[in-house]
Amino acid sequence: MTGAGGQSWRTQKRVFATIATGPILWLLLFFIIPLAVLWAYSFGRNVGLTEIEISGTFANYAKAIEPLYLQIFGKSIAVAGLTTFICLIVGFPVALAITFATPKWKPWLLLGIMLPFWTNLLIRTYALMAVLRTEGYANQSLGWLWQLSSNARVVLGLQPLDAFEPLHLLYNNFAVVLGLVYVHLPFMVLPLYAALDRLDRSLIEASLDLGAGHFRTLLTIVAPLAAPGIISGVVITFVPALGAYLTPDLLGGTDSQMIANVIERQFKRANDWPFGSALSFMLMYATFIMIAWQAQRERKLMRTGIGPDVGARA
């Protein structure tokens, strides 16, 4: 994606200026500048209750790489990674179904995916809690099934089952992952759909006609072709999941804090903006490194001539 390809901006300066001015200016004014202030804070220290002295100290970063915080970073990445993986597995077939749905059905399916997400995140989370509670609908349904099968055993002349023990579905890491999947699924489905929609279907047909199964076709033909969409879906899911704080707060158990919870506490409860900034920027540095690494890799691929998107322009 990091196309080293494409035309040089010099060939069409006016067009480039028309296109580039808006986004770059906006980003500079309303993102880079405000964030630069916080970046400066990450090298500062608190003086009194509301004042911060930019002293150029690295103390905040030194604290941020203490094992305690690294461990929380690690755990957050694991939880977000698992969430993303599940979203991909669950979301891919759905995106595929939407892509190949009839034009009449397509918008409805898209709407169906999006609609729950027009309900407030907090309300959705509470709704999920009502389902997962010890006396919630999930346990009620399971209890009912349990009773049914117990009765069936009696009818068959077997011992009835023991009394139903409600599952503890809330306040643990399972609940956090489930909640994150619930919340982030459309972030995965939409980019996947956008990428799959204009796939060259003849390739798939060819693969099928040549005797490859659907699953194999999916893996060897569809997935590589949809790679840009998969990557953007993964990024768009993983990153917000990494930054989730409400879900672990409300669904998690006593050990389910994620890095965003810690960051949030620094900006609010602990009133330690310099340290909060340092923790936040740790996340951003990591992203930069990842992006740079990927750009590097693509450049290498490009050089060996097998890179994607070499560009039709010669």
């Binding site: 980003l27 993102f31 990024v235 960051i263 951003m284 992006i291």
Partner: peptide, 15 residues
């Protein structure tokens, strides 16, 4: 490109 990706990664509270 990196700057464009940042709003996606920056923790909400920080921004």
């Amino acid at each position: 490109e990196g700057a464009m990706a940042l709003p996606i990664v920056v923790p909400e509270i920080c921004f």
